[in-house]
């Protein structure tokens, strides 16, 4: 049990799926991370997106929730998951303190986007920690599917 497990720091606008046991760590403010876990094959992946929907401009990168979540599901399937087995956990989407009009309610909208896409794909959200004004640091064990969370002061 004391074998050293790989640890990976996930940056915003990125996603990763690991089919060997890995601890994925990320830091969230208004950003949202969707963690997908396959309890049958015992592996998982995480995205970390900043804005809800791609607006048709720039690259179709996983900076946007719709793209990041669809891509995460596709990557899990590509690495051998059956979509029906997938379980989701949702984190982040805190309210940010500065009030830029464009960024109004961004955390909440990020969460809604993730939920909608997961629902459309019939993937159940089995637990979540979203909203509030605190940032979060999460650590996802892709083998066991457990996620450890700590609340932190982070406002973006």
């Amino acid at each position: 049990m004391n074998d050293t497990i790989k640890r990976y720091y996930l940056h915003p606008s990125s996603l990763i799926v690991c089919n060997s046991p890995t601890e994925i760590i990320t830091l969230l403010g208004s950003c949202v991370a969707v963690c997908l876990w396959d309890p049958v094959k015992e592996f998982g992946g995480m995205n970390h997106f900043m804005l809800p929907l791609w607006n048709g401009q720039g690259l179709t990168s996983p900076k946007y929730g719709d793209i990041a979540t669809e891509k995460l599901i596709a990557r899990m399937i590509k690495l051998g998951s059956d979509k029906h087995n997938l379980k989701a956990k949702l984190f982040g989407g805190a309210s940010v303190l500065f009030s830029d009009n464009n960024l109004f309610n961004i955390g909440e909208r990020n969460i809604e986007t993730a939920k909608e896409i997961l629902e459309r794909n019939k993937i159940p959200v089995i637990s979540s920690s979203t909203g509030s004004t605190m940032g979060r640091k999460i650590l996802f064990n892709t083998k066991t599917g457990t996620i450890r969370q700590k609340l932190i002061k982070k406002n973006n």
Binding site: R7, Y8, Y9, H11, E23, I25, L27, K89, F91, S127, S128, S129, K137, L139, T146, I147, R148, Q149, K150, L151
Partner: peptide, 15 residues
């Protein structure tokens, strides 16, 4: 530098 430390003490919640 990426802060990939996760100290086990403190108010941690498991999901």
């Amino acid at each position: 530098p990426d802060d990939d430390t996760f100290l086990s003490e403190g108010d941690e919640i498991i999901f």
